[in-house]
Design a protein around this nucleic acid. Structure first.
Lengths: 235, 235
DNA sequence: ACAAAAGTGTTGTAACTACACCCATGT
DNA sequence: ACATGGGTGTAGTTACAACACTTTTGT
């Protein structure tokens, strides 16, 4: 499976090849706003700009493995699930040469962040107060958000941003932050319960907070939601 | 923007690089069944097997441009729109070396096919009677179909498989072929008209067919469908 | 005591599903 | 004449959106 010739100048191929990287748009939630995890670039190009964690594909890994590895190296995070949402391949998107990026997004409980591991600064930013981003990462974020909004109806991803037990208002705030619109409390709760993906848990609540019923996510019922919700109805 | 060193052995890079290709899953419709366009491989590997049209990325084109160019070269087709649906990057998916494929799908009116241009045999196959496929193209097809089923609710792609004017039963057969289920004629028509994306056209019909009202696609109303249908309702 | 957040139920409306008969064409 | 496919409407049911007051907690 060796397709190159090793020369003193490096790995040689018959035709030119683009470099492949992965980038990961990591969403978090602080109870109010949707957050995005960024890394400050230490070197050129775009030195000092903020960018999504990511890096070059190794020859012994898939793009999924690459995204996971790079994220872990740069932030310490190991998300349960990463969703691929697009390939960015404009010929001039990276001044260093022809670089093609496969992009992923993931949702992470904010608490999990080991604040800036070995790598440079890693920080959460509210999605509505982002610094200038490197490369075409602004486009990337836009597409990641679009993918997230699309997927939240079909995949049980939203719950990854919350603790095991959560209150309805918390869940609702999360949905409102992601979808960017407001919902009616009563209707929201009705639909969530009707879909069966959340179930009532104990009625207790730790001190220091307002009270509130606790709910938990029921993965077993997610398949139904999938069908229920993807209009398998009748056309 | 030159990131390689040209040697007598070819284009040399500091680190090994995967080759990047695009493949296109082309769907057609014969009025009854969903069809897939395949190309018979003339060379190794998988000689004699059938595969999706596609090929290697050039350095001066995006993956979208590459998919379009390769499709045109191999089949003469120039679809209006191609949808990217995934990247395939298993390390051993191509015996020739490390090859990463960005996959697209497109819908094409069957009539448009210029039956096997310069390239090898290109043939339509009913989706339920496919020959053995090369590489990981069976997985690819599965994902393409899943993407198509997902997208047909949100994007006006289904109409690309029909003539400008079509009858409701034709449209319904198309949806049934794609989604793999049967619908009630009256309800199907009601929903289609209610969504506003189809409008009644003349009542005439060419001879040699059964009669039937003709409809046409109304792209202007598609945005509404998008919102209407992506549950922008209330949660 | 007051402000802020959380809990709860009902009702009108719109959308969906299920269903049966007639008509036109082609054989 | 018969079989096939196409056209059309209604009624029962369910899902949805809109809406206001009470209770608890924290200040």
């Amino acid at each position: 499976m060796q397709d190159y010739i090793k020369t003193d100048k490096g790995y040689a191929y018959e035709y030119p090849r683009a470099a492949v990287t992965t980038d990961s748009v990591i969403f978090g939630f602080d109870g109010q706003e949707l957050l995005v995890l960024l890394i400050k670039r230490g070197g050129e190009p775009y030195k000092g700009c903020w960018a999504f964690p990511g890096g070059f594909l190794n020859m012994d890994e898939t793009v999924e493995e690459c995204a996971f590895r790079e994220l872990k190296e740069e932030t310490g995070l190991e998300p349960d699930q990463m969703e691929q949402f697009g390939v960015f391949s404009a010929v001039d998107r990276d001044p260093r040469g022809r670089v093609l990026t496969v992009s992923f997004y993931a949702l992470i409980k904010k608490e999990q962040v080991s604040g800036g591991d070995d790598a440079a600064d890693a920080r959460w930013f509210p999605i509505n107060a982002l610094p200038p981003l490197a490369f075409d990462h602004s486009d990337m974020l836009r597409e990641a958000l679009a993918a997230l909004k699309r997927d939240i109806y079909h995949k049980p991803i939203g719950f990854m941003l919350l603790d095991e037990h959560f209150t309805m208002p918390q869940l609702q705030r999360l949905y409102e932050a992601i979808l960017g619109e407001q919902f009616d409390r009563r209707n929201f709760q009705k639909k969530m319960l009707a879909s069966g993906v959340v179930e009532e848990q104990g009625v207790e609540r730790a001190m220091g907070h307002r009270p509130g019923k606790l709910f938990s996510f029921v993965p077993e019922n997610y398949d139904q939601m999938k069908e229920h919700d993807s209009r398998a109805k009748e056309f």
